[in-house]
Design a protein around this nucleic acid. Sequence first.
RNA 1: GGUCGGAUGGCCGAGUGGCUAGGCACGGGUCUGCAAAACCCUUUACAGCGGUUCGAAUCCGCUUCCGACCUCCA
Length: 491
Amino acid sequence: MNTLHLYNTLSNKIEPFEPITPKHVGIYVCGPTVYGPPHLGHVRGPIVFDVLRKYLILQGNKVRYVRNITDVGHLVGDADEGEDKLAKQAKVEQLEPMEVAQAYTDSYNWVMDKINVLKPSIEPRATGHIIEQIEMIQTIIDKGLAYEVNGSVYFDVMAYSEQQHYGQLSGRVLEDLQAGAGNQSRSLEGQDEKRSANDFALWKRASAEHIMQWSSPWGKGFPGWHIECSAMSARYLGDHFDIHGGGMDLLFPHHECEIAQSTAAHNHAPAKYWVHHNMITINGQKMAKSLGNGIMVEQLFKGDHPLLAQAFGPMTLRFFVLQAHYRGTLDFSNDALLAAQKGWQRMQTAFKLLNNLPTVHEGATIEADDLLAAVVSSLNDDLNTPQVIASLFELARRINLVNDGKATMTEATKATMKSLVVDYCQGVLGLVSEDAGAGDGLADAMDIIMALRGQAKADKNWGLSDQIRDALKAKGFEIKDGKDGTTWNKL
RNA sequence: GGUCGGAUGGCCGAGUGGCUAGGCACGGGUCUGCAAAACCCUUUACAGCGGUUCGAAUCCGCUUCCGACCUCCA
């Protein structure tokens, strides 16, 4: 494909991507609800949309990327009387709600940095946009598509569906949504206040002991759990922007409600393209608290989890995520992670050779134009990163051939290869080498040890050289004797 | 129950009406004090049963199994 195409959930088709305003792209991605430490599920979306964003930038677009922090509003599911998730966690920990939100926002962003996800252009918080949400709710009420009951405001789905198509995004039909949902034990507070079971809260009245609450035209309360994204996306990207992203689990009801709210308020749909990534599984099973198989990102980095035999670095995680297409489920397991880690190491090793490779003026036996074309084409085809990675492995193979003197290339080919490594591997895919020991003096210290061991080897003092090697290995440093000297890396 | 997705070689995971995905593991080789690493090579698998077709893993139907969503979720 010659231009970027994306799968649009709105049409269930792959469509050519054309910005509303040429060379300017607005992206809104649903960020985390910050009431717990980041787990593996939190990582996929940011990586996928980071690749999309970086690719759009490489193509010369100016991108405004908005990813929110939800620090209020989501109701607790299990018969908790509509308590705010954050407030609940706060009581448990005896902290201020904002303290909880801050701590988990920080740990989320720490993970984002580790996995080389670019910071959002704007990272708005739901609590910082209460006024915008109230204004939007008022607009919807004024249009007769929402109603107030006892200090709560509900969106009137039936009234809305008389003018607009409710269910367009998720493919749901209103009649099918009536009753009969699988989880019959689900009885939410305020259900009897609604005119229809499909109506959803825009604003909820807060009880006195509810910690997070704000004044509104309808009394003290807090926003419903869809309105924040509608209000914040409109504020920072306008009421009609290019791409709205998120996980498939948000498709219904969250995104469907967003469309309904925004359409009700602005008379047209908010986003042109809706892009959804699929979920992750652990050893083939859904990751869920109830199954006890949730893996926190920090546990992965430390290897501190029963399902993990070792630690895996941030780049291995990123590489692993990108080795699968974003619309398919992705299965985590120790073996799969291990395979990704080894593959990524091999790729890095080859790419590091590139700068020092010799070139020829004529009689070159390999080129790289075909790989560049393949990479671009794969990205254009709905961000097919697995195919991009396959092409990069072929690049690694060719680099190794030249390095081994089994093939030759021109300076122009070398330049193309550099572009593949710098612009696409490091740039778009965001896969950068983790240089162990950079800047903390470790490298210098290791150089000294390597020199001493080199002397022992020169003296054929194998006992000492092996002892050094084994001792370092025990501390997590791997020693490799190559033909051009000894190298090391941190495992 | 309703709606929507999947089932690919030992593992992960692309693709798709006829042409090698790729990675990891396994195996063979090069290199090497040993080891590890690195590098090269490693010859087709698509749930089952029907159907359409010159030809299907790829399209259609049925069956079995798995999963997601149905107002907690990335």
